[in-house]
């Protein structure tokens, strides 16, 4: 799939809850109490539980899958920095837009933001534009 520079990707918007974080902890096998134990997490520098970084990235990946289909699975690249934690009660929006074409790839600037517009994750995602493996 080819998108023009400047094209906006369809956002993925998720209402984050502690139940969702707990469900991800079970599926992902990451039971770090920072994510699942409010009493433990309250004593950390975060002051409460936070979502797994890989859960937040899953929302970005869903956005890329919806935009680019199999090409994302066959040669997608993601490079991000975690800027702030996502917390239960947050509305997390994964957003992105095409910034350039480079070396046979479409490169997108991507972010996850919360309902206050704070950036939780930012970086780039690149996807091949040609034939893809199946």
């Amino acid at each position: 799939m080819t998108l023009d520079v400047g094209a906006e990707l369809t956002p993925v918007v998720v209402e984050l809850t502690q139940d969702k974080i707990d469900r991800y902890a079970l599926a992902g096998g990451d039971g770090n109490p920072l994510h699942t134990d409010p009493e433990f997490a309250a004593k950390t520098q975060f002051g409460g539980t936070i979502a797994h970084g890989m859960l937040v990235l899953a929302y970005l990946s869903e956005m890329m899958t919806a935009a680019f289909g199999r090409a994302w699975l066959s040669g997608g690249r993601l490079k991000v920095r975690f800027k702030a934690p996502a917390r239960p009660g947050d509305t997390v929006s994964a957003v992105g837009h095409v910034v350039r074409a480079e070396g046979g790839r479409t490169v997108c600037a991507v972010e996850c933001r919360n309902q206050r517009g704070e950036v939780l994750v930012s970086g780039e995602a690149a996807c091949p534009t040609g034939e893809v493996a199946t």
Partner: peptide
């Protein structure tokens, strides 16, 4: 279900979300 990924099923029911592999 945990990540609420609606996009992967639209491609092919047998495919695994790439972030599932990363989670592993």
């Amino acid at each position: 279900v945990a990540v609420e990924d609606d996009a992967i099923g639209a491609l092919d029911e047998g495919l695994v979300p790439p972030m599932a592999v990363a989670a592993l």
